[in-house]
Write a protein that binds this DNA or RNA. Sequence first.
DNA 1: AAAAAAC
Length: 460
Amino acid sequence: MKFESLSLCEPLLRGLQQAGYDEATPIQQKAIPQVLQGRDLVGCAQTGTGKTAAFALPTLQLLMAPVAEPTGASRRRQRSGRRAIRSLILSPTRELAGQIAESLATYGRFTGLRHAVIYGGVRQGPQVRVLDAGIDILVATPGRLLDLIGQGFVDLAAVEILILDEADQMLDMGFIHDLRKIVAHVPSRRQTLMFSATMPPAIRKLAGQWLSRPFEVQVTPIASTPERVSQTVHFVQRQDKAATLTRFLNETRRSKTLVFSRTKRGADKIARCLQRDGIRAVAIHGDKSQAKRDAVIREFGSKRPPVLVATDLAARGLDFTDVSHVINYDLPDTPEVYVHRIGRTARAGASGQAVSFCDSDERRQLRMIEKLTGQAVPVEKLPALADNLRSPAVTSETGLKDTRKKGAAEGGRQRPAKHRARHNSQSSRAGSSNSSTGSRRRRAAKASRSRPKERSGVAD
DNA sequence: AAAAAAC
């Protein structure tokens, strides 16, 4: 179905056309008419299927529509002589907020509507100036928004449409307190939209209090993964993960590669290991300055992108083009995160590979992932790490070709012997060795860091 | 227990 048949107005169609978009995805086909009718909505669809446009397009259109009878909002706008914020879009990360704002700029180019994006880590002055100039749509992360509300720079009293992107995360424990405070500033008579690829039942139930008679769009079973991601799991001992990663990267034909770490310290460490092994790599996580984060994201989008090692900061929503491999160096503790992580590849119809390292302490996480996605993750052994008596590598069930270069282990870069993998065919069984050096080093590193404590009053 | 998110 084409965008033309969704009764979108001419300026939006022009914006879409100029951006090269023509066909509406299933989530867009189903959500847009409902949003245009003013209904609350919960939209669940697989990663990379255009959820942002599914809320951005109808929101822009609703805000453009001339109002016959002046509403409170438009009266307020007339009286003050400037625009009021009529739609608020909340995002769990700064980078995703920025990306949503970019989409609004693209689709809304010919609408005459204005938007702004606000988040922490950058000077607030420029943000305040844009707010003062008057905007129709505000994209924000919770912390900075509350900060600016508190300082009296943001008035949400005219908000007509509230949108939670990555809604299940916004409603989860880390964000729910801030979210409640924010929603208290938004009129209760409003339209509320929630979008995510995952929506755990408990969270969905919680969401009910902010929704009235919501229309539910479920394009595919909740938490289903894109068919075009071929998934495999490698059983590996924890102490062999770094060597395994280096070898995998050296022996795999790949384009952009994203490696996920469970911790910030781990992300730094993995990036350092890769650099030491001669692989260009950069890390991104919440302890880096925003300037650094921006630079890293830019680099990853460049012609010669380094391997990006990230925390779950980059798990959701970010639309990197041409990611061929997502590697779960650590398995996430919540299975939903797995679905989002591997969704950074195989976007907009492309294909991709997701490779997960699973050590003996991560079997439970793997089981949870398989339960959530309703499919077993095929086990694959890395030939380079197994002894030479082992049978050849299993080809994934999707029939995708094994792209590893044969014999690359011998020809490729080798790390010093002490780092070399000690793997044999037994290594896929649960290992019992538990390295205490790792945790000791971690504690030492923690002690030497002298960062200010978490903000007060939110200790759990 | 960790990550994200304000100064």
